[in-house]
Amino acid sequence: MDRVRTDEAHRRRGLGDFVMRTLADSAVADGAVLGVLGATAAGRALYETLGWKKHATPAECVYRP
């Protein structure tokens, strides 16, 4: 999943929680033991309520030769 967002009219209804828990549960059922994701500040707030922990601050890099 990449660049997922909830439309303003549908925020604060638990949709992000539902989607992330469903994806995580499915991954664990398939044998996953580690999850890695990148998040915006807004997304990070949601992920932390779901038990995700910050490990590092990602950097955005572009290379144009």
Rank of each mutant, 00 (worst) to 15 (best):
D30G: 14
R5T: 12
R5L: 08
T57N: 14
L37S: 04
G43M: 07
R64P: 01
T49D: 01
V62Q: 12
W52G: 02
E48H: 07
L37H: 01
L46T: 06
V4G: 06
L23I: 13
G16M: 01
R44P: 00
A39C: 13
L37V: 07
T40Q: 11
G31K: 11
R3P: 00
A56F: 06
A45S: 11
A41F: 05
F18P: 00
V28L: 08
M20R: 01
K54T: 14
A32F: 12
D7G: 14
V4I: 15
P58G: 08
A29P: 00
A41L: 13
E8R: 14
V33P: 00
V62G: 06
C61L: 15
R12P: 00
D7C: 10
Y63N: 08
A45P: 02
G43P: 05
A9K: 15
A45N: 06
A39N: 05
T22H: 12
D17A: 11
V28E: 06
V36M: 03
L37G: 06
K53S: 13
D25Y: 00
H55V: 12
T6D: 07
T22Q: 04
A59H: 13
W52H: 06
D2C: 02
A56C: 06
D30T: 01
A41E: 15
L37F: 07
V28F: 05
E48N: 03
V4K: 03
G16L: 03
G14H: 08
L46M: 04
A9W: 02
V62A: 14
A32R: 13
R3T: 08
L23P: 05
D2G: 07
D30R: 15
